[in-house]
Design a protein around this nucleic acid. Sequence first.
DNA 1: TCTGGGGTCCTAGGACCC
DNA 2: TCTGGGGTCCTAGGACCC
Length: 397
Amino acid sequence: MADYSHDCPILHVDMDAFYASVALREHPELVDVPVIVGGAQRGVVLSANYLARAFGVRSGMPSTRARRLCPQAVTLSPDYDTFTAVSSSVMETFRQVTPLVEVVSLDEAFLDVRGATRRLGSPLEVAEQLRATIHDEQGITCSVGLAGSVTLAKIGSRRAKPDGVVVVPPSAVTTYLHPLDVGELWGVGEKTQAMLHRLGLVTVGDIAHTPLRTLQRAIGVALGQHLHGLAWGDDRREITPRHGAFEADKSMGANETFGRDTDDREVIVREILRQTTRVTNRMRVAGVAGRTVTLTVRFADFTTITRSRTLPEATDVTQEVYRTATRLYDALGLQRARVRLVGVRVEGLVARTAVHRQLLLGEREHGWSDADRAVDRATLRYGTAMVGPASLLTARP
DNA sequence: TCTGGGGTCCTAGGACCC
DNA sequence: TCTGGGGTCCTAGGACCC
């Protein structure tokens, strides 16, 4: 096979059906069976092997629907510890090739291999070496897209699936790109795709030949600019080496869907406290504090609202976040609305060392802060189940 | 008994300030 | 005597990604 990859030093590596593939390592007896990795009663499909996909099962799909499509599938519950461990090993393999690794998620990364070709061969050869290594070491397959830019590499890997490689050389960019549906572009989801289709813009080529201003009027200034550029293969996004989340997070949040919808304030407020403790604990571990507290409430009909409040000072104190979130909840004045989910998020995160507490709130806050750190220490030693606010010790509904 | 959980970014209006 | 114009912050919602 001719190697056209010399001008394609950007690799997008994407594990094939990652969660399902990892889960199947632990269950070799299931390799010839449709397998779904997914949540419990009210969950969605996290991943499905290709046998299940043949029945139309897709990740993100409600589990109930997936079971209807493929009743004979075996459902496995996710084991995040294993997923995380496998992911770390894979990312480590990438870093043996180049330090320029941008981790997108557990199962995806961009690599800039410009600095590795002298040592390891053409980008295509590097890609094949990586695929072989991951297969040998982890027992799972991946697909790789190679191009001169991240967007094209990403499109390449999608079209390489499963277990393949696609090279998109610069000379082929427009001929490759223009026939594709607009939905293939990164940043075009369901809504934007539908909107563009309504306007008669079906392919990437249609976007390319639409005046920028027209495009921007339809879908907004920023997105219009972005897509118009991409349609001509103009993508200047650089790879920024990142080890994944947790490095410079701008916000941290937690939410969980109730097993059953509820209108019981006591249950809801207890859940707000539970989510708050999860968030603030993670914040303190990461050494960050934040000023804006956002409460999310999703109702039984799936409509979702948010309410936020910005505090005078950044905080990582559980009680402060909890009190703010609870006030936001009570200000909604809900009567008998059935609530499906509540969530708490803290935004505007900064390093805790950068926060100058003015102690406006007095000694009492100091007390709470000390209490938090005691809980954190205990949590570290005994696990989350053992320590927490007394009001969480009651069983959840 | 359809529809998770973790995030990021953009838009738009109003307040507020100069 | 008709009343600008920007910039920044805050809030709410929405689209998108994995």
